[in-house]
């Protein structure tokens, strides 16, 4: 703090001289650059540089064991276009991401609204819904692996209410569904808390005024709640969309991409190709594809934000 105060003072003094070089915008700019510099340097070093290297690798045929590394131009991208698995992988990825995002956001918002009611014990339930967030991911998936067995806990519970559960991780549809649910239950608490925080920030007067105007519950939700919490919706949906395309450890533990290719999402396929099959060049090309997809989706959300998000004009 001392140093920054000093900087401020220097800047102020400089600014009060006869011919002010340090105008307010210039001072601001300097401060701005200083404040973002750690993040910027970090990005250059730990994001952009590695990313550049990945693009570079994607133009090579790299055999780690034989220590060969040779330029092959667009061969890895040609392979990507011709890869017979690509269709299945991309469909699986889309199904997985859409399912996960929709389930996560609706559940998070529903829970937040439920827990935002004046009801005794909401603190207790809030803790319960949030608790999986705190359990280590590896531990969480190991436990679910047991619970989802044919004779596991989930079917045991279903049996209590007289339902004979399927063999969750062995059916193509149920496996995909299982991975989505396991992931949502693990992380929905975070989004729930963010929504809850946003909901509590909505001024009560708005609802009261709307009620006087005779607006029903749904109208109040659509006209007041959603616009008011829209920045949080933007934030959570970006985080969730990006996160859904990066789900890896759960799939590795629960299904290893199967049965068939049903749960082989792009990031898992990339991992398989690069690390298990040791096609590092091809894996790099897949990385570039994944990066482009995530970037396009995020950019789209970011572009659309002006249409519906408050505080963004």
């Amino acid at each position: 703090m001392a140093a920054t105060d000093l900087l401020d003072r220097v800047a102020v003094r400089a600014a009060t001289r006869a011919r002010p070089f340090w105008t307010i915008p210039r001072r601001d700019a300097l401060v701005g650059y200083l404040l973002i510099s750690p993040q910027l340097v970090g990005s250059a070093l730990f994001v952009l540089l590695p990313l550049g290297l990945v693009v570079y690798y994607s133009l090579q045929e790299w055999n780690v064991l034989a220590s060969t590394f040779e330029y092959v131009g667009g061969a890895n991208y040609a392979k990507l276009l011709a890869d017979p698995n690509m269709g299945q992988v991309l469909t699986g990825t889309a199904l997985f991401s859409v399912g996960l995002v929709v389930l996560n956001l609706t559940l998070a918002l529903s829970l937040a609204i439920l827990l935002n009611q004046r009801l005794a014990g909401t603190t207790f339930f809030r803790t319960l819904f949030f608790s999986p967030v705190l359990v280590s991911l590896v531990a969480w998936t190991i436990v679910w692996q047991f619970l989802l067995q044919q004779d596991g806990g989930v079917n045991g519970l279903l049996g209590v209410v007289g339902v004979e559960g399927p063999n969750w991780l062995r059916g193509e549809t149920t496996a995909l569904l299982s991975v989505i649910v396991v992931q949502v239950v693990k992380n929905v608490g975070l989004n729930m808390v963010l929504f809850l925080a946003a909901l509590q920030g909505v001024p009560r007067q708005l609802y009261e005024a709307a009620q006087l105007d005779g607006a029903g519950a749904w109208t109040r939700f659509a006209r007041i709640t959603v616009p008011q919490i829209s920045p949080t919706i933007l934030l959570t949906s970006i985080i969730t969309v990006v996160g859904s395309l990066q789900v890896f450890a759960q799939i590795a533990v629960l299904t290893q991409g199967g049965p068939g290719m049903s749960t082989t999402v792009l990031v898992y396929y990339l991992y398989q190709q690069a690390f298990q099959f040791r096609h590092l060049g091809y894996g790099a090309a897949l990385s570039v594809l994944l990066f482009l997809i995530v970037a396009a989706l995020t950019l789209l959300q970011w572009r659309l934000r002006r249409k519906w998000v408050f505080h963004e004009s």
Binding site: D28, V47, A274, F291
Partner: peptide, 27 residues
């Protein structure tokens, strides 16, 4: 704070949001 290049730099930083760790682990 307004400073020249702000939006571009923000986008540059945002790139980090888009990269799964599997992508950059080798470099």
């Amino acid at each position: 704070i307004r400073f020249p290049g702000q939006n571009v730099l923000f986008l540059v930083v945002l790139v980090g949001l888009l990269i799964p760790s599997e992508v950059t682990i080798v470099p």
